[in-house]
Design a protein around this nucleic acid. Structure first.
Lengths: 184, 184
DNA sequence: GCCGATTAGTTACAGTTGCAACCATCATAG
DNA sequence: CTATGATGGTTGCAACTGTAACTAATCGGC
């Protein structure tokens, strides 16, 4: 999995910000229209893809590292000895993704694994010296990217962003869609 | 492409919000540490995936519709007669994704296509009556989901969110990563 | 101690996605 | 008119990702 193709996001289009053309066939009294460019899930998706795509390309080119691998390394750097399951928790990845990322990191000798004595199903994962070296190289890059995106935003605005993301995630997670859908 | 598997996001883990354990082997003087749960691209990615996953599942179950298909329908509802390339622009999808979504929508008779007379490479796409019917059914659902996530947020906060998303997307797009990476 | 139920982790398979190569059509130059 | 190049759109192929099935090990009675 080492020579991973970069797969950047082409991200071809600035959303036209507004296209308030009334739909001809639907008529003026259509119940509600939805402009994609103002639809929250869409906007978040485009934003996240733009950022992740940029980062993924950079990681792949510079460090031969995929995003899942990076996530695993990031949590192991702060909490060495985690099991794969714990890593999955911490990274919001599923266990298969973690398994594959770990396999790849093992091959690259960036992570090492030892089975736990008392429970031999479980294993303890930690960065190797090489892994730490890569980590120390990636972190400044990641932080620089984040800072570049946020540069110039006043602290109060950053706080607001932080709160908003927290709040939205909490709500999105709590949401049961069961009784939405006014139609049908 | 009709019986599309829902592919919901398991989204298994609340990020532990903080895990400020100092990395034992890295020592106290490591230049910077990065906590994944506070890293903007990561948080955006998790949030967007959570929302999109929920919506994708719901669309698939209720309307037999994928997100790419929905995006195509959404822009065609507001701007009938667009070409596939224009649709790609409007939806921030690449042309292959549009091509496939359109193919699927044609099969389902939710979109129809006619070649342009003056330029027979190009085609004009528009929703059929069936397509409009589906659209009118989906829109309230989509808006209800968005509203459910935003429910209770004061208008000022919503405006702030709107501005922040706009601003972040602008910055992310403008960012050339070329001269980032302080290391290497 | 032994059998069913659980949990950790991996493997297999299928569906999805993206890039690149590809046709078809149009535009421009000679 | 033909050649060259650009553009719209589709297809082939390879990589990625998720679900489900599977193996290995532990746990919980009995």
């Amino acid at each position: 999995m080492s020579p991973r193709p970069p797969r950047p996001r082409p991200d071809p289009a600035p959303p036209p910000t507004r296209a308030p053309q009334p739909g001809p066939p639907a008529g003026p009294d259509l119940p509600q229209a939805l402009e994609l460019g103002r639809f929250l899930p869409y906007r978040l998706s485009v934003l996240a893809n733009t950022m992740s795509g940029a980062i993924a390309t950079a990681y792949a080119e510079r460090f031969d590292l995929s995003i899942p691998e990076w996530r695993v390394m990031a949590v192991l750097a702060l909490e060495p000895g985690l099991s794969a399951a714990k890593v999955a928790e911490r990274t919001a990845m599923d266990k298969v993704a973690v398994s594959r990322a770990v396999a790849s990191l093992l091959r690259a000798k960036r992570v090492e694994r030892s089975v736990e004595a008392c429970d031999r199903r479980r294993s303890q994962l930690q960065l190797t010296a090489r892994g730490h070296a890569v980590y120390r190289e990636v972190v400044p890059f990641a932080l620089a990217y984040e800072e570049a995106v946020l540069r110039g935003l006043p602290p109060r605005t950053r706080e607001k962003l932080d709160e908003l993301l927290e709040e939205l995630l909490r709500r999105a997670r709590a949401l049961r869609l069961d009784r939405l859908a006014p139609s049908r």
